[in-house]
Design a protein around this nucleic acid. Structure first.
Length: 586
RNA sequence: CGGGGUGUGGCGCAGCCUGGUAGCGCACCUGCUUUGGGAGCAGGGGGUCGGAGGUUCAAAUCCUCUCACCCCGACCA
């Protein structure tokens, strides 16, 4: 180092982990607009700060956790043979037009125009850009398979961001894409990624479950979500209490179930003035809800369709969308209902309806049913499915619920869980490679379309999920593997010379041993420090006070269990190093 | 996009109805006393009251417009 360089600090590394040098401000009061635990605690512990709706600064301690999660993700992916790249923040509209998603994606895609009028979007995901990269670089089957990933900031202009980092507009995501010569190899990779994801979330110390999932807007034909189990989760998961089957409610299959078999007769009109809901009609006619045919009108990609389920069943829009192969699906507006059925809302029925009918499995062969008559204030009773509204195909359209029998095994039934989706793996097939011409030459020199898979992990959401699952009334309880640091040194009385000297020495020893440690060198009262320590959730706290130092001891306390033990001052560092490395090795 | 709500110092809020010198708690700075689970006293710094326009002798307060943020709904990897 040139001698003219001023050097006030002996070591930057050392001083940055002194509390008084950290950009860290804890807050006693609850932020008024934080609804969920993770959001509240992240704000209170000074990990994040909101800049705009759904957009956050991540502060030093928060970023350390983010980096920990990233490191685990990178290690496991690299070990699985993936390669990291970095794709641009902006993607040109042409690529998205090639795949058809420029129009399909909707307002969630943030679009912008550069000074010369060219259109771009801020990448919400990178299938197009990655496929473009690979088609430009890969010619031969010899160069496949390929699994490329990046860890980058994504932007999705969410309709309603909420819950802090759980559902932000800007978020850090690891997104990976794999390219293969055939489906078999792609399925193999899918399984490899599935296993890799399970290892990643296990290493992060999370209680999660991999569940079958709907493929949504990305498309493709097979998918699992990795769900961190937590009360505040936005997703509803159904899992069999008997076998391994578990799925997102959007996907959860149902056993066929009994149709409604009531006494058959000729259809006849029944006057039902003003009774437009199943509940009302059922009460008015004193008939069970299960005897009705619920007729729901939708607009699917600009055509009208009627979805039919039994009156006591709940329609799953996700299942309907899949059954129709529609990219867009919405309930019909009042005027559209009138146009399709000829009646006001609540009086539609399958008999005589001239739009496409999509019928739930449970209505196959149903007899003696009641439905709307497609005229105001009128219902039709005595309807037989086969006779009165025959259809060629039936679909699983019901939304599953806790207690429904498991479709995969005998005797099991669904239990409901709440989950936070932190990762998802997709088998994509050739949707993008075909649209964008990602091809290779096989051994015979034939041009073939690549098979693709796509795999995502929400890094910042994983951090939030970890807090949802690991906290108590006093604050965060970080799993050691993703804690900002492992150890917090807490000198009870900083002004006391012996205490300070013992703390400084321990600090040096731990740093030298490679342990991540914060030294709370604030001249604060013990209570303040203890409370902040609990709030920050550092796995181990070492309390150093005049009393103990006089006896030659310090106290080591584990945040999660609250168990503490006295350590001899001169061997304390060794014990702490041992405890930390043992926990991290687990 | 529809419905509801809130903008006053870094954070949490009062003041607004009934216009008249901008307040409280936390945090921050100084000093003294305290000190093993969110101390006490004294002193201090910091706010064009989200923004623009209007009414008025006078606007945080009344009126109009606008922006931001939050909640509920539709939507969603």
């Amino acid at each position: 180092m040139p001698s003219w360089l001023p050097c006030r600090r002996s070591s930057t590394r050392e001083s940055s982990m002194r509390y008084t040098r950290l950009l860290l401000q804890t807050v006693k009061e609850d932020p008024s607009d934080a609804e969920v635990v993770s959001h509240r605690l992240m704000l209170r512990a000074g990990l994040i700060r909101q800049v705009a709706r759904g957009i956050y600064d991540i502060l030093p301690l928060g970023l350390r956790t983010v980096r920990k999660i990233e490191a685990i993700v990178r290690e496991e992916l690299d070990a699985a043979g993936c390669q990291e790249v970095s794709l641009p923040l902006l993607s040109p509209a042409e690529l998205w037009r090639e795949s058809g998603r420029w129009d399909a994606y909707g307002p969630e895609l943030l679009r912008l125009v550069d000074r010369s009028g060219r259109e771009f979007c801020v990448g919400p995901t990178h299938e197009e850009v990655m496929t473009d990269l690979v088609r430009g670089n890969v010619r031969s089957y010899r160069e496949l398979p390929l699994n490329l990933y990046q860890v980058d900031t994504k932007f999705r202009d969410e309709i309603r961001p909420r819950f802090g980092l759980m559902r932000g507009r800007e978020f850090l995501m690891k997104d990976g894409y794999s390219f293969h010569v055939d489906e078999e190899d792609c399925r193999r990779e899918y399984q490899l990624m599935y296993d890799t994801y399970a290892r990643i979330f296990t290493r992060c110390g999370l209680d999660f479950r991999a569940v079958e999932a709907d493929t949504g807007a990305i498309g493709g034909s097979g998918s699992h979500e990795f769900q961190v189990l937590a009360e505040s989760g936005e997703d509803l998961i159904l899992g069999c209490d008997h076998c391994d089957y578990a799925a997102n409610v959007e996907k959860a299959e149902l056993a066929v179930g009994e149709p409604g078999l009531f006494e058959s007769s000729e259809p006849s009109e029944v006057s039902t003035p003003g009774a437009g809901s199943i509940e009302d009609v059922s009460a008015m006619l004193s008939e069970p809800a299960g005897r009705f045919v619920k007729t729901l009108l939708f607009v699917a990609d600009d055509r009208g369709v009627a979805a039919l389920v039994r009156g006591d069943d709940q329609l799953s829009e996700a299942k309907l969308k899949r059954a129709l192969g529609a990219t867009e699906l919405r309930m019909a507006e009042a005027d559209e209902v009138k146009k399709m059925s000829g009646a006001p809302q609540g009086f539609a029925g399958p008999v005589g309806l001239e739009i496409e009918l999509v019928v739930d499995l449970r209505l196959r062969g149903a007899t003696g049913m009641i439905s709307g008559a497609n005229r105001a204030d009128l219902h039709l009773s005595g309807i037989d499915q086969q006779r009165d509204f025959p259809v060629a195909e039936f679909h699983d359209l019901r939304e599953a619920a806790a207690g429904d029998p498991c479709p995969r095994c005998n005797g099991g039934s669904y239990q409901a869980f709440r989950g936070i989706e932190v990762g998802q793996v997709f088998y994509l097939g050739s949707k993008y490679s075909e649209a964008m011409g990602a091809t290779y030459l096989d051994t015979d020199g034939n041009e073939c379309v690549m098979e693709m898979g796509t795999y995502g992990i929400g890094i910042t959401r994983t951090m939030a999920a970890a807090i949802e699952q690991n906290h108590d009334d006093d604050g965060i309880i970080w799993p050691p593997a993703i804690a900002p640091v492992q150890v917090l040194l807490l000198p009870v009385k900083w002004k006391d010379d012996d205490t300070r000297a013992a703390s400084e020495k321990l600090y040096e020893q731990l740093l030298a041993a490679g342990v991540e440690v914060i030294l709370d060198d604030r001249d604060e009262r013990a209570g303040v420090k203890f409370n902040d320590a609990d709030l920050l959730g550092i796995p181990w706290r070492v309390t150093i006070g005049p009393r103990g130092v006089k006896q030659g001891t310090v106290e080591l306390r584990e945040r999660r269990s609250g168990e503490s033990s006295d350590l001899a001052l001169d061997s304390a560092a060794q014990h702490i190093v041992a405890a930390v490395s043992e926990a991290l090795a687990r």
